[in-house]
């Protein structure tokens, strides 16, 4: 079974219904380390050796965060800046993260439709996530498409429950090392057949 590290960054987690629900199911799964960054480092003082140790001990790294201003909250960026050291995570001798899997799990207030060239936000989520994609690539990790819960401003209870289950299934699939059937059109992991299997059946 592959081990999964969920790096979770939410400055106001107590106010986020969506994230509370998402986290609830996967938080205590066996083989999952749920790492609540804002709770662990309220003063942004990240424990570097500890973080490196955690990364080394896991096969899958998830950046789980709300999508603020087309980006992650500041502590997540701080984490990237501090932890992904030269000649450890990248650089000629940096191979600590080689071949690990990596992805973003994000929540956005706006619906999927506004994230496209014709929508208010002009670019797709995948385009906005390019820095993460490249970061993962530079560290030798395999970057997967994001798992996105969108339109949280208008999310119904039923839809949220579906997302919660999907997230759990996603973690399960990652743990079992299943390969995702990623097509060119596939923007989000949500869309892959694997996860939608149940719906179809």
């Amino acid at each position: 079974m592959k081990s999964v590290l969920v790096l979770f960054a939410h400055p106001k987690f107590e106010h986020s219904k969506t994230n509370k629900a998402l986290v609830s199911k996967i938080q205590n799964r066996e083989g999952v380390t749920f790492h609540d960054l804002y709770e662990r480092y309220p003063d942004f003082n990240i424990d570097l050796p500890k973080e490196k140790e955690l990364l080394k001990a896991h096969d899958v790294v998830i950046w789980h965060h709300p999508f603020y201003w087309y980006n992650c909250p500041p502590l997540m960026k701080q984490w990237i800046d501090v932890v992904l050291e030269f000649n450890w995570a990248y650089g000629p001798e940096g191979n600590a993260l080689q071949d690990k899997k990596c992805l973003n799990v994000i929540t956005t207030g706006g619906a999927r439709e506004v994230y496209c060239s014709s929508g208010n936000n002009h670019y797709s989520v995948n385009e906005f996530l390019r820095p993460f994609e490249q970061t993962a690539r530079l560290c030798g990790m395999e970057y997967l498409p994001p798992f996105a819960v969108m339109g949280t401003h208008n999310l119904s209870k039923e839809n949220l429950d579906t997302y919660v289950d999907q997230y759990d299934e996603l973690i399960n699939a990652l743990q079992e090392g299943k390969t995702f059937n990623i097509t060119k059109e596939c923007e989000f992991l949500n869309d892959t057949l694997l996860l939608n299997k149940k719906k179809e059946a």
Binding site: P11, K12, H15, Y68, G109, H153
Partner: peptide, 18 residues
């Protein structure tokens, strides 16, 4: 300081628009 990172207001606005 609930105004930061609180989407209640945005949610309300979104409801009004829809």
């Amino acid at each position: 300081d609930t105004r930061q990172w609180n989407s209640d207001e945005m949610r309300l606005a979104a409801k009004k628009n829809s």
